[in-house]
Design a protein around this nucleic acid. Structure first.
Lengths: 199, 199, 199, 199
DNA sequence: ATCTAAGCGAGACGGTACGTCTTGTCTTAGG
DNA sequence: CCTAAGACAAGACGTACCGTCTCGCTTAGAT
C-alpha cells in the first residue's frame, strides 16, 4: 500500500521493509499516546529510529502517512457472501465499524477533516476507502437481486449513507461507547431492510 | 453567544458590538475562501480590521471562535409540534441537516476533529449542540407516546444516531451534493419509523 | 544597525531591545564555543531564550545575523587625523586589524565565503564595510595631499589591498598568531609608504 | 593527488581513471554554474555519471574533493630561478595569483572557510599549499642572499603575507577584476623590495 | 577457467539545519 | 477597560544535504 514512488530502475538500494514497519508501529504508538493532533513527524522518526527523509520517501505528508498506516490493506478485499442480504450487510457493516472503532481516540475525525482539506488525500480516500465500499455494496445488491430478495433496488450511495452514517454518528458525534455498536447495528439493519421491502 | 468573560467591573469602556460582527463576518468569509484548516487568527483580525486581542477577549481559542460564530443561537430552540411523529422528526431532521449543510466546505469535519482534540470545546459542543438535540428528540418522543403513536419507545441516543448519521455520512463521508438530502431524509424517516412499529 | 523592517506604523508593540542583546550575546557565545559552521539558529534561539521568529524578524538569514552582530556599529565612523600620513594609516590599519582579529576562530573566513555566495549579504558588506574603508582612506589621502606629503597619489583600491591584504593573509591564510600583527603592520607601513615617495 | 585509500590487497578490480576525470570535470562545471556553496555531491555524481560511493572512495569529504580537484599537482613544483630577486618573486607571485584567480567565483573563499572549520582539510592545505609556498620563498631568499642582493633577510612568513595578502584582498575582499592584478603586483613588488633594502 | 576481492551506478539510510508558519499571550499608545 | 498593531516564546512543518550503507552487477589478477 505504501511505496508512493516505486523505483522504476531496479538499480539502487531497495527500500528496507523494516523501516516501513518501524514507521507504522511508531505512528500507532504515538496516536495512542498523544493523539492525532499532537503527533509530530520528528517524534515518529525518533521513535522509529529512522530519518525524516525515510518517512517522506514513503508518505507525501503527515496526513497520508497516518491514513496509509491505519487503513488495512485488506479492507473489504472480498465481498462477503453469506447467503442472505441481511447477513451480507451485517458482515460488511461489522468490518466497516471495526475499521472505524479501532484507531485511537480522535484519529478518525482528524483524518476526515484532513481529507476535506487536502485534495490529494481526498483522492486516496476515495480510491482506497469509499470506492471499495461502494463496489462491495453493489456486489451484494447484485447477489440479493439474483436471489430475488429485493422488491426495489436501492441507490448504493443512499444505502451506504444509511448503513455507515449511524455507526459514525454513534462513535464520533455522540461519542458513545463501541460496546453499544452491536445493538445499534442490529436496529440499523432492521430499519434499512424495511426499505427494501420483504419479498 | 459571544462574551465569554463578561466585565466584572461595570466601569471602563464597553465592548463594541461592531467588533463582534466584524469578527463573525471575517470568519465566515475566510472559511469560504480558504477553508477551516488554512484560516488563521491573524488573517481574521486583519480582515475584520481588529486586533487579535479583541478576538481572544471574546473567544478562548480559534476553534471556539468558529464554533460560536457558526452555531445558530436559535438552534432547536423550540421542539417542533406538527401533530405527528413523522412530521416532528422531519422538522428536526431538516433543521439539523440545514445546520450541517450551511457552513463552507470542510468546516464541519474540521470542527468535529477539534471537538475530539480539545476537552473544553467538547464541553461546549455537548452543551450547545448534542444536549439540545437529545432534549428535543426526547420531547418529541414524549408527545408521540402521549398520542399513542409508539408501540416501542426507542432509545434516544440510538434514534439520534439513526437520524443524524446518514445525513452526516451523505455530506461528509460520501461528499454527495446537498441536493440529494431531501430524498435521503425521506427514505431515512421511512426506515426509522419502521422500527418504532406501526400502530 | 539591525532592525531590518522598521515598523512604518507606530502602532503595535515595539521591539524589545533586550531581545536584540540576548541574540547578540548568544551569537557571540556560540561562535566562540562551536564556531561559525556549527552555529545553528535553533541553538541561538534557545541560548537567548527567544523564539526563532524573533531572530528572523531582525535578521533575514543566519549569515546576515552574524555579520550584523559582529560588525561594530562605529566601525571607522570617523577618519583618524593624527597629523601625518603614516600615523593616519597606522590608526586605520589598527582598527581594521582589530575588527578582523576579534571574532572567534573561523568566523571571518566563514563570513567572507557567505558574502561571495549571497548577493544580499554582499550588498550589506559593500555598504557597511568596504565602502567605509574606501571613504576613510580617500579622506586620509586628501589630507596628506593637502599637507604635501604625497608625490604620487596612489589608487585607493590598490592602497586598500596593500594595507588590508597582508593582515588578512597573516591571520587567515597563514594562520599566524595575532601577536605578530604589530611587527607585520610596521613593515607593511614602511613598504607602502615607500611607494608614495618621500617628500 | 587522488587515491586516498589505496588498495592494500592487489586483488580486486582496479580504479577506473575515467571516473577520476569525470568527477573532476563535473566539479569544475558545477563550481562555475552554481558556485561553491550550492554544489552538492549528488549533483556531482549525477553530472559525472558516477555513484556517490565512487566519489567518496577517492575523496573523504566534499571539501577535500574540491581542494584536490582544484589545486594543480604541479603547484610551485620548482622554485623559479630568473637571475634576480625581483624576477623570482614576480614569477612566484604570478603563479600564486593565477592559482587564486582561476577557480570560479566564490570557490577560494568557500574553501578557505572550510579549511578553518575542518582540521583534516587544514592539514592538507598546510601541506600542499602553504608549505610549498614557504619552501619556495625560502629558497628564493637563499639564492638572493648568495647573490648579495639582500641587506636584511626578511622573515619568510612576513614576506609571504606581504606578497600574497594584497592579491587575495584584491580578488576576494574588494572583489576587483583580475585584470587589475598586473598593476597591483607590480606595485606590490616595488613596495616589498623597498623593505629588503637596495644593494 | 575459475575464484575472489574490489570496483561500479543507483539510491535508501540516519541525522540535522534551514526558514516559514501558526497559536495564544503580552506590550505599546491612544480612546 | 477597551481598541489596533504587532512583538513575543514555542515548536511543527517539509526540504535539502551530508556521508554511509546496501543492492546487483562487472572487472580484473591470482590461482
Amino acid at each position: 500500500m505504501s511505496a508512493r514512488k516505486q523505483a522504476r530502475n531496479p538499480g539502487g538500494r531497495p527500500r528496507d521493509s523494516r523501516v516501513d514497519d518501524a514507521i507504522a508501529s511508531a505512528v500507532r504508538e504515538l496516536l495512542t499516546e498523544v493523539g492525532y493532533t499532537r503527533l509530530t513527524m520528528a517524534e515518529v522518526a525518533a521513535r522509529a529510529g529512522v530519518g525524516k527523509a525515510a518517512i517522506y520517501r514513503r508518505h507525501a505528508t503527515k496526513q497520508e502517512m497516518i491514513f496509509e498506516v491505519l487503513l488495512p490493506d485488506q479492507f473489504l478485499a472480498v465481498a462477503p457472501d453469506c447467503g442472505s442480504l441481511r447477513a451480507d450487510l451485517a458482515a460488511v457493516l461489522a468490518e466497516i465499524a471495526d475499521t472505524m472503532a479501532s484507531p485511537p481516540q480522535g484519529t478518525v475525525p482528524g483524518l476526515l477533516a484532513d481529507v476535506h482539506a487536502d485534495p490529494a488525500l481526498r483522492d486516496r480516500f476515495n480510491e482506497k476507502y469509499l470506492g471499495v465500499q461502494r463496489r462491495t455494496l453493489t456486489e451484494i445488491l447484485d447477489r440479493a437481486t439474483a436471489r430475488g430478495e429485493l422488491t426495489t433496488r436501492p441507490d448504493p450511495a443512499t444505502l451506504n449513507a444509511l448503513l455507515v452514517g449511524p455507526v459514525f454518528a454513534w462513535l464520533f458525534l455522540l461519542t458513545e461507547s463501541p460496546d453499544g455498536l452491536p445493538a445499534l447495528t442490529s436496529a440499523l439493519l432492521d430499519a434499512t431492510l424495511a426499505l427494501t421491502g420483504p419479498v
